[in-house]
Amino acid sequence: MMFRRLAAPMLLGTLLGLAGCSGPLSTLDPAGPSAATAALLWWGMFAAFSLVWLAVVGLWLYAMFRQPASDDPARARRIEKRWIIGGGVALPVVSITVLLAYGIPAGHSMLPLPLDKGESLEIHVTAHQWYWEVMYPESGIALDDELHIPAGKPVDVHLRSADVIHSFWVPRLGGKLDAVPGRTNVQRLQADEPGSYRGQCAEYCGVGHAHMKFTVTAHTPEDFEAWKRQETQGDD
């Protein structure tokens, strides 16, 4: 019995492991511009830092087991300077410079800045223990735990909290942003393709935290308009 309980996830795990990074909540399976940028940053850093890590560990091992060739103090001093200035100062400074050159514009691109053309859709989300109250201010549609958005169009989620701090996160679409009592934070999301994307609360908010989930459904623009009409019908 135990074996079968273990076997299924193991098998599934192996398959998923081979598949790499997909998953309904995986940041490595991006479906929007913000998440794609973040995933790209990850892969770049992962590749570069893996090399750094391997190099440092390798050098360390070599340094421990090598026999120093001579006791010439002048030579030793040259080696010391080389390692400290090259490895200790230059390596981090170069890495940081490159990282920031990519990272700061990347962060800037995720901000909810005014668009060059058109308007973004505004959705109000209020976090409660333990559900998400969703409101469309222009149409008056109100929902719980589900958002509907048009694909290919930026959406600004205005986040508030009714009780404690929560964090709004749709991993495949973009980063997370906290819902803090007394403030309104604005998170820009965009889904490239129609589909269903899962979201969850990322900041511990009490015993219901693990189950504070929601979905974001992206429609084609036409379907989105149809959905809006359907939702508003009968309301007024």
Binding site: I96, L100, I104, P105, H108, L111, P112, L113
Partner: peptide, 14 residues
């Protein structure tokens, strides 16, 4: 200098 650099490229408040 390093920490001051972002002031050149980023808008202050958003």
């Amino acid at each position: 200098l390093a920490i001051g650099v972002p002031t050149i490229v980023l808008p202050p408040c958003p």
